[in-house]
Design a protein around this nucleic acid. Structure first.
Lengths: 338, 338
DNA sequence: CCTGGCACTCCATGGTCACGAGTGCCAGAT
DNA sequence: ATCTGGCACTCGTGACCATGGAGTGCCAGG
């Protein structure tokens, strides 16, 4: 096992490297941190840390930089979550309080998180399957054309046009609307399929075609929109990665454009608590030199979606984790209120 | 005025530079283009073009590159709009035909355009003010809580929660819904304010507070959402800008993150026909080394929104313009059908 | 008005060299 | 057993310089 001081050396290396972006040597370390030992001793410790794979040197005779494994140890054992400062906390409140609808909440959250962490922010829209139904509305727009509107408890609204096989009267439509709502309101979207499966049969023969078409569209919407939507922002922060990174930024931007990749990324995060994935721990190749800090958020106890940031492995983990957690909590509150 | 051949030389310079990204010299020009004259002659022409400000040399004794003014002349006089190839055309249809709702249409359009032009694509959502009202729906979610849903002829849906000062009965709500719809359906959103202004008075005293709150929210929504939404994609293509551009890419990414900037950018484009803004013609500083190709699209004759691409001034103008125009036309068709 | 030739400019490339930061190791001190 | 100071060594960085080649402007002649 590593001695106390060696851990301290690792912590110092991570902190310095995160600050300076340059490999850190033994002498510089002893100067900036009160380790109480000489550079030579630190060198021995560094050699040990390197043997264990926590740090590496880019070239012989250069300083050391932390490896993914080193960051992992740092995050797990050495670093706490830095609480936000009061001004930052206030900024979150001010910024999020003005939101008018769900799109706006998500949009503001993304910008806020990007600004706070100075990294790329990713926010997932509240999932349909984990939300509950607040209301289902059916609007007759034309004789044989119905618009289906789904409203969730998190404020999300989905709508879909339905072309009916036959015209349907206002009365029947109102009937369908009422029955549908009485069955599903307050229930989770995931349960809707079972709840409506035998609904068609209770209608007159002439309306059954239309009813079943509407229901089919409803179920289809549930499936399609399970493939979640998300919003990203702060990509300009990628340019801070370092002056040498035109090559590194490319695959990251590409990965960020693929919603599928991002959704998988967030999906891999634990439902509760914070998840940090460092460098090669990310399955996607383009993100091998980035870390992802993600956390679930929700209007109640349960997470309805996730949000997080993507940044260089060399990031300020305590600060980033603090910001992500604080934002997630407050967004949860906002959703609960609306 | 410039002689015919000098224009030809300019065209050749633009084409070569767009292809190679390197300053083009007189010798290379005569080799790649059948100009029928010697390098020396071309040099004279180039000197003339430089005097007029159409081309410039990065350093003495290097080849020439077109200036913004040069590109302008090229676009206005020398270049046509390159029609798309049949496979490209088919790709557009295949890609856009599967869209299920407006979000999906816009999302697909952005990706398509980015892929086709290999540049950054920007697509504005159909504007509320220029669309017409298809339906206004009021849903009573709780005794004193109403959800307002606006549906446009372009498939756009906006919803907003309204907290009412007093509970309102289903009958009154149905009444309001009916009167509201009879006044505004088929009308342009821009005209809605006048159309509803005296509506409150026709209600019973007890409901007036609620009615006027609902109407106020409706008008507020119109105002807020006039500030249009848009979607961008293909930012990864920015990395193709050239290997030296980590400095140039930064302000562009920043500009792209500011919706306001982009909206202004698209707003400056003409309503009909294609608009090309080259380099410094763009007001925003971060976009001084980019060109914007934008065009309006709509479900009918009239543009309801705009879309375009942002790329380096050194772009393939004919091809880009062709792609932008083709995509805009087809999106218009899709919207008209839905 | 075009062309070939010529002298000139200047960027890009690549090699050499000195510098300095950093290392590993060892012998001696604690 | 552990820390420390010293020392030789490695290598990347930046400065400096020479070379080559692409491109230019200009001029005299067709």
């Amino acid at each position: 096992m590593l001695s106390e001081r060696r851990l301290e050396v690792l912590r110092a290396i991570v902190q310095d490297y995160v600050g300076t972006e340059e490999p850190v040597g033994s002498k510089a370390l002893t100067e900036r941190h009160r380790l109480g030992v000489s550079p030579a001793t630190v060198r021995n410790d560094m050699a040990a840390l390197e043997d264990e794979g926590f740090i590496a040197q880019p070239h012989t005779s250069a300083g050391r930089i932390p490896t993914d494994k080193g960051y992992r140890l740092f995050v797990d054992k050495l670093a706490g979550v830095k609480p936000l400062s009061t001004p930052e906390r206030r900024a979150i409140h001010n910024f999020l309080d003005g939101a008018v609808d769900l799109d706006d909440v998500v949009g503001r959250t993304v910008r806020l998180l990007a600004q706070l962490t100075r990294q790329v922010a990713v926010v997932q829209y509240p999932s349909l399957t984990r939300s509950t139904v607040r209301h289902v509305e059916l609007l007759s727009l034309a004789p044989a054309r119905v618009m289906l509107v789904l409203i969730t408890d998190t404020g999300r609204v989905e709508q879909r046009m339905v072309d009916c096989p036959a015209p349907i009267g206002e009365t029947s439509l109102a009937d369908l609307r009422a029955r549908l709502n009485s069955r599903v309101v307050g229930r989770r979207f995931a349960d809707v399929p079972q709840l409506v499966q035998d609904l068609t049969e209770s209608f007159e023969q002439e309306d059954r075609g239309t009813v079943s078409t509407v229901l089919a569209t409803l179920l289809e919407t549930l499936v399609e929109e399970t493939e979640e939507r998300l919003m990203i922002g702060g990509t300009a922060n990628l340019t801070r990665f370092g002056h040498d990174f035109p090559l590194t930024i490319r695959p990251v931007l590409e990965a960020l454009e693929e919603q599928v990749v991002l959704l998988k990324l967030l999906g891999e995060a634990k439902d509760s608590g914070m998840t940090v994935r460092i460098g090669h721990e990310n399955a996607h190749e383009g993100l091998n030199s980035t870390s992802v800090v993600a956390v679930g958020y929700g209007s109640g106890d349960e997470a309805v979606a996730k949000l997080g940031v993507v940044g260089p492995t060399r990031m300020d983990y305590p600060g980033t984790m603090g910001a992500v957690r604080a934002v997630a909590r407050y967004v949860g509150q906002i959703l609960a209120e609306s």
